[in-house]
Computed example of a mutant assay.
Amino acid sequence: MSHELTLQLIDTHAGGDVSRIVFGGVDPLPGATVRQQMEYLENDADGLRKLLLNEPYGIPEMSVDLIVPACDPRAKMGYIIMEVMGYPIYSGSNTICTATALLEAGLIPKQEGKQRFMLESPAGLVQIEARVENGVVEAITCGGLPSYIDTHRASIHVPSVGDVTYSIAYSGGFYALVDATELGFALTRAEESQLAKCAHAIVEAIQTRTGFSHYTLGDVGPLPFLHFMGPVDQIADDFYRSRSATYVHPGVICRSTTGTGTSARLALMHHEGLIKPGDRLETVSLRNTGFIGEFVSSREAGRYQVVENNITGKGFVLARSEIVVNCSDMLVDCDSVHHILSTRHG
């Protein structure tokens, strides 16, 4: 008898950001909500995240989304997001990839035209609208988290960079928003390594100065994201476009502009009186891929103006595979993951 640990995967990308969707091989997790199941992984089984984002199976620039049964009966499925920085409670690109994978794998049956359903993320229920043409998922629109500006145009001195003006938005995580032009960047792919070094220094400096607290969630950890903003071009009365780049601490420039980064931009544009409900912003990445954010409405929450928004993008299936987790491999650490992996006897 042999005991083999395997994981069933669908690798996807949206805007260039690769999301590895895990849909088989993990035992049911404890927790009455997807958020509680995420917290169990974070505290008691973080080996799954490390296993799939590090050698020999993956790289830190990827993300992982674990498919779990929905706890809320209104949702079709649940999913838990894992990244190099830990466990974000929400991500636009990961949501687009997860919805695409569920449809393309038949775990949620496709319907030609537009179909709507809900998924349960650690942040709660997410409304999904899929556009299916000739049997292909051509676009996913997902609700962005309510976003707001916490800090507007503060200044900090950053060693090796100089004086930096930044704003802080919350859009599923806290983002430092900085003007790329002020820092000498044109947001081209050739600048990727320099953007990462610059962002690392800025985030480290801001983390040293202060922490940030969500008005209902409280302390959600140290600042994890920075978004470089290029100039905004008005393409039509209700449509804008801007080159952008999102950094995840430590050290990763995302391939896409990210959904939460786009939501953060909408919050800042609303705060500065630059957009109205119904307006859309396309953020364009270093690889010329894009997401479209729509400013739906705003409301007051304490001292904040909270922006309701949607994010639209397209996901692509890259591979369907099964990986073998070999705990005798010196590159594989099974200590904090073997207890949640299903064992197949053969």
Rank of each mutant, 00 (worst) to 15 (best):
T151C: 13
I253Q: 02
M77N: 03
P30I: 01
R20T: 13
Y87G: 07
G124L: 03
I96P: 11
Y79N: 08
K197V: 07
P231Q: 06
D44F: 07
P30F: 05
P250Q: 09
P28I: 00
T257R: 05
C97R: 05
L41K: 03
I108F: 13
V26D: 04
H271M: 08
Q194V: 01
H200F: 08
G31R: 09
Y304T: 08
P28Y: 00
D150Q: 15
C97E: 00
D219C: 01
R35C: 10
A301C: 07
C71H: 09
A180W: 01
S242V: 04
M1T: 15
K197F: 07
T208A: 15
F239N: 06
F117M: 10
H152C: 08
V84T: 13
G313H: 06
L48Q: 00
S121K: 08
H200E: 15
L268H: 08
D46N: 15
M38E: 08
F239D: 04
I81W: 06
Y166R: 07
G86T: 11
H3Y: 12
M118H: 11
D11R: 14
L187S: 06
A105M: 08
A123N: 12
G31A: 11
P122Q: 00
I275H: 04
I156E: 04
P277W: 02
T6Y: 01
G92M: 09
Y247I: 10
G86P: 05
A75W: 02
A236E: 08
D238K: 09
G278A: 01
Y57N: 06
R320L: 14
R303W: 01
L268K: 08
A190M: 11
I253G: 02
V137D: 10
G135S: 05
V325K: 05
E61Y: 13
L266V: 04
Y166K: 08
I340S: 06
G184R: 01
D179P: 03
V325I: 15
D44I: 00
V178F: 06
L281D: 07
